[in-house]
Each structure stands twice: as C-alpha cells, then as structure tokens.
Design a protein around this nucleic acid. Structure first.
Lengths: 354, 354
DNA sequence: AGCCGCTCCCAAACCGCTTTGGATGGCGTC
DNA sequence: GACGCCATCCAAAGCGGTTTGGGAGCGGCT
C-alpha cells in the first residue's frame, strides 16, 4: 500500500526562504549553494540540491532579476497594427532559431507587439523598464530610426538585415542578398536569357533594395538592363507571383527568365506560366530565393523544385541570438557584422533560353 | 535655436523613489497617484503624472509583479526539439492574433521553448516560478497529459483545439473540424464524385482525427467509403501534397476528388495534377481547408484559388487570448468551450465529376 | 598561548514596487 | 473648546531573491 501523501501539492510555492528553513540553513547559504559558489561545503551543497529537487523548487525569475539587474530575457519586437510581421513565415522561422539559442542559455524570449506610431515611446519604455536585456530588430528600412534610438538608449541590440544609411556602426547579421541575386541572374544570363524579370519583396525594405542591386549589376555587366516594368515589388505571396507573372507574360516581349524573392512567389509564377500554356524550365525559367522555411521546403535536397539561392533563416536567427548574447556579455568591444553567403542549387525550373 | 538639452539621457533609469524625491513626495503617494487611487488630491496627481511623463518614467514590471503577485504575462509553449511548432505558419498567425489581445490588455507574451522529454518538469517549473499568469496550449493530442497536469497545478490555461479523451473539463477554443470536412466532402459528393481522397495533417493530432471523422461520416452516409490508401497523413507541406497526389493518381482507379488539410498541401496537389497532364476543376477536383494565413491567402475574396472551408486562425488566437484573460480574471466559474464554425467558399478548383 | 588563515555559514541590506495601517491637519459640530 | 470626520499623505513591511561584509570555529605555526 502506498503511504499517505506526506507532501501534497504545496498550496504555497516553495520559496528560497522556506527551503532554507526546512534545511535549517540560512537563505544566503541555500542561494549560494544553488548558484555554485565555492564557499559552501560539498555536503551542504548536496543536501540543498537534493531538497530543491525533491520540493520542485524553481527560483522566481522576477525576484532574481530584480536582485541581479539582469532580465534574462530577450525581446523580439513585432510591429503591431495592420502589418503583423509575426505572421510572416520568415519571422517565425527566425524566431524559432533564436529561441533555441535563448533556451540553451537560460534566457526567455518575449514578443512585444509594438503599437504603430508610438514606436519611439515604446522602445524608450521598453529600455527604461528593464524588461529585457537586449533586442532583436528585423526587417530594417534603409534608414531606420530605431537603430539611432537604441544606440542612444544604450540597450544592446542586433539587427537581422542591414540599414544601409545608418550613421553609426551596429551589430548585424545578414545574408549576402546582393551577391545571391547577382549570381542567380548570372545563371540565367549564362543560359542565354536576355529578358529577365524580378519579382521582388516589398519596396522600402533593405533586403529588397540589395537584391534589386544585385540583379541590376549583373544585367548591367551583361549590357542588357531590364525595362522598368520587369521589376515588381509587393508582399511575397503566391497570388502576387501569379498576378505579376501573368501580367509579364502578356507583355509584347515577355521575359524568359524570372527571379523571385521567395518560394511562394515562385510557386505563383509557376502557376501563371502553366496557366498560360507554357512550360517552366523551357519556355520560362524561374530562379527563386529559398529561405529554408521548414514548412515550405524547396522540394527535397536531391530533387529541388526550383533553381534557388538558399540561406536558411533559422540559421540567421541562431546567429543573431548568439551575437546578441555575446554583446550582452560584453564580449564585443566593437560592432561585429556577420554576412552569411547563400548557396546556389540548380533545379528543373531553369533551362536554356528558348 | 534649440535650447541646450536640459535633461540628457539619465544614466540611472528613473525609479519610483527618485521620482518621489524630485517631487518631495513619498513613494507611496506617487505609486497611488499613478495607479489611480482616490486618496490623492487632484492637484498632486496632476503634478505626479506630469513629472512621470517628463522623466519618461516606466515602472519596472518585474518589481511590480513581484509585489502584486501577478506576472502580467502569458506563456505560449513551443514544443522544442526537432519539431519546432513555432515555424508552423498556423502557429505564427495564431500567436499574432493572441498578441494583439495581450498588448491591448497590458500583458506581455513569452514564448517558452519546452525541451522535449522534460515536459512534465518544464510545465511544473513554469507554474512554480510564477513567470506567467496563464498558458495557451496548441496542437493537443487526443489524450494530452498536459491538460491533466496543468489542471492539477492550478495554472489557468486555454487549449487551442481539443483533446477528445480528456477526463476533466477545461477551457478550449476550436474550429468545427468535423463539420467543415463533412461539408467539404458533401460538396464533392453533390458534384458526383465517388472516389474521394483525403490528404490530412499529421497523424495523432486531434484536429486530424476530427477532420478524418467528418469525411468518413459524409462518405458513409453516401455509402461510398474510401479505400484506406485514399487517406494520407503527414506534415502539411507542399511537397507532401505533390508526392501523395502523384501516388494517388498512379492508382488503378484514382480519386477524382481530393480534400486537403491545408492550402500548401492543396498547392502541391494541384502541381501533381497538372504534372500528370490533368486539369484541376475538371479531371480532378480539390477542396482544401484554408487557415486564413495572411501570407498565404487563398487568392482573393472575389477570386479564390481553391474551393475551401475557412476559419482564420488569427481569430482563434484572439478568441483564445480573450478567454484566457477572462479565466485569469476569474470571470468564468465553469470551463467554457468555444466552437467556431468554418465558412465555405466555392472556387474554380472543383467541378462535376468527369 | 597567541596569532594567522581557512573553511563554512549567516545577518542584513538591497533591487523597485505595492499595500497596510496609521498620522496629520483642517473643518464642522455640539 | 473638545471632539469627530474627512481628505491627504506617509512609514514600514513585505514580494523572493542576491550580495556584501563579516563571524565562528578550527588547525597549524611560532
């Protein structure tokens, strides 16, 4: 027969003081034992650890961080309002990667939905409140006021992407967007394509600009600049890919090569091509960028759907998180940029120009 | 000319005590003034509010919640390990919806990546630490141990979805998966389809089971049960849709109607159909479920891509968050379920059976 | 014996806020 | 003039940890 429950679920959660009392020790000693200080005897430490485990003691992070001054939390700021960046699949994968790193380091991740308009105040309050030890910024605009603001506030932060026009140096992690799209364009050029369109991401974002620059540079080098109507900007949805491609194909001299900024756009483009009675890979070639989203794979490693440049955004999240933790730990004296290359995979979606 | 900055950025953040000192008031009075108690004169309150605004004072949420006992934070638990649920686009949209509600109510949202295997301990520690006031659970399995655990721990929670086999009542928000898929199937049946396949989500999840049940019921009523090979389960990717459909079409008597559990699967299915030289909407009809993801719209409202059942998951997030806040505020004495219907839209992807 | 240095432990202050239980002074009332 | 009652304000005690600055006890050395 089981003995009667000697310890039913504690009505009051175990606190450090209670734990100390039950061990006939002072809170000081228990705290130091748990935190691995070396001025507590091995025997005592064992007793403390054992009792802590048995009672399911978990230190109150709030009290702890009030005492230490460190929040042990990283903030990811989500622009609120109509354009919820969080629903962007890229955002989700990035956050997942970063979250892994935080969890391993004992940090927690708080998502702050920043009300649109009150951004300046919002960031100020966030810094002043001490809610987080650092911030990750995403989707920066070429000149992003947040960078100046945060530098001024002295709150550690790392930017995913770059703000080309920033006046002061800062920490960032980015993919080499320009080079990736330069290379993708050169691939099409090498296949003989001369009319090449770009279905880019939203206008005004830094990465969009860099990708466009890469394409432009390749086309310029090959002396075949694209007409303005061959460059489109929009939120990266399948529908956008479909509509834009349909429109492009209706052009008098339609493009034979299409570059897209995301897999979803590429899927829309493919649908448009096929709906027009053409074949992808022969009539029209498609090269896309692949963010390596786990729920949206580009086929399989052996059999990709699209020819693609690829830089897993989960990796970016991990890199950014690691950098931020290092910055917080004051391991960096000087802003450290990190530019990650994209890989290039040839798939069935590209072929010689017709 | 601008006057010289009278107040440079404070090296020390403004605290309640400092603010009180600068006003020659006690911290008590300042606190009560800021929190709207009525035992402070209107004049004083105005002075306090003014000074707070001017100094950019933001109360330290950690200290506050240590004092009040309320964390003012809601936890969303992300199963860690290999299967990062957070990268699931459905998860992201749900969280975005919930986040709106939290932000409006002054709550923050913390994402806890729960290490796989140590779930029991993890939830216990989360509850004991007082890090959050409540939890949202997603993607429950038919008998989910977490529900029993959390009920026992006394931590308020709301489940997105249901756990059919749960022994005790609990709060949940769910879409009527069974009815939605019943209706979708009836649509195909009414069009004369008799060989109907289901590309479902992962096996073992509650919503997958409910959807399968809906389809099965419709088919049974129509006296044309599907062969076992017509029901597939997997993570909901485009590739899965493609592969599964390709396999189905190679069947001796292939299905003429395909139901899919997500838009991505449907897109894969469409690609497979077209690659097989068939037309969607005439040779093969596709009905999908549409989670209303903002970055993956089902065409437009006027021109949907697919015939679809639809229940925006962002709305679910909002509903769940509201319910949780109500539970925390002890507004509910009895567990309140909330079953949301799905809408049904006919698009070009379905037509009479060939 | 006296002193030093170690090891192990602890009392008390503090982090920044809330909340309880008065204290103070002005005013009306009898 | 004494009393009671408001309207305002505040001192101090937490909340649950960490950290500083010792202090007790003990063995070894001179």
């Amino acid at each position: 027969m089981a003995p009667p429950q000697s310890k039913p679920r504690p009505a009051q959660p175990t606190t450090l003081r209670r734990l100390a009392q039950s061990l006939a020790l002072s809170p000081t000693t228990v705290s130091r034992a748990l935190n691995g200080y070396d001025d507590v005897s091995e025997g005592t430490r064992r007793r403390v650890l054992e009792a802590a485990r048995a009672s399911g003691y978990a230190p109150n992070p709030r009290a702890r961080s009030l005492a230490t001054g460190r929040a042990m939390a990283i903030g990811h700021v989500v622009p609120g309002g109509s354009e919820h960046e969080i629903v962007n699949p890229v955002f989700a994968d990035f956050v997942a990667g970063a979250g892994e790193v935080y969890a391993a380091a004992g940090y927690e991740m708080v998502l702050s939905v920043m009300p649109e308009g009150a951004e300046d105040e919002g960031y100020r309050a966030l810094a002043q409140s001490g809610r987080v030890d650092g911030l990750i910024l995403q989707a920066p605009r070429p000149q992003d006021a947040r960078i100046t603001l945060l530098t001024e506030l002295g709150l550690p932060f790392v930017v995913h992407g770059r703000a080309s026009m920033a006046r002061s140096p800062y920490h960032w992690v980015d993919m080499d967007n320009r080079r990736a799209f330069l290379r993708a364009t050169q691939h099409l050029l090498a296949l003989g394509h001369r009319r090449i369109a770009l279905l880019n991401g939203p206008v005004g974002l830094d990465f969009s600009a860099r990708r466009a620059a890469g394409v432009e540079e390749a086309l310029l080098r090959a002396r075949c600049p694209a007409p303005p109507s061959f460059v489109c900007h929009d939120r990266m949805t399948e529908t956008y890919g479909y509509d834009a491609t349909t429109k492009l194909l209706a052009h008098g001299t339609p493009p034979t090569g299409v570059l897209t900024s995301s897999l979803l756009i590429a899927m829309g483009a493919r649908r448009a091509v096929e709906d027009a009675g053409l074949r992808v890979g022969s009539d029209v070639s498609i090269v896309t960028h692949d963010d390596g989203l786990s729920y949206l794979p580009n086929g399989t490693a052996e059999a990709p759907m699209f020819t693609a440049t690829r830089a897993p955004v989960g990796t970016m999240g991990r890199e950014a998180a690691q950098m931020l933790l290092a910055v917080i730990a004051k391991k960096h004296r000087v802003p450290t940029p990190r530019l990650l290359p994209a890989t290039f995979t040839v798939g069935p979606s590209t072929g010689p120009a017709p």
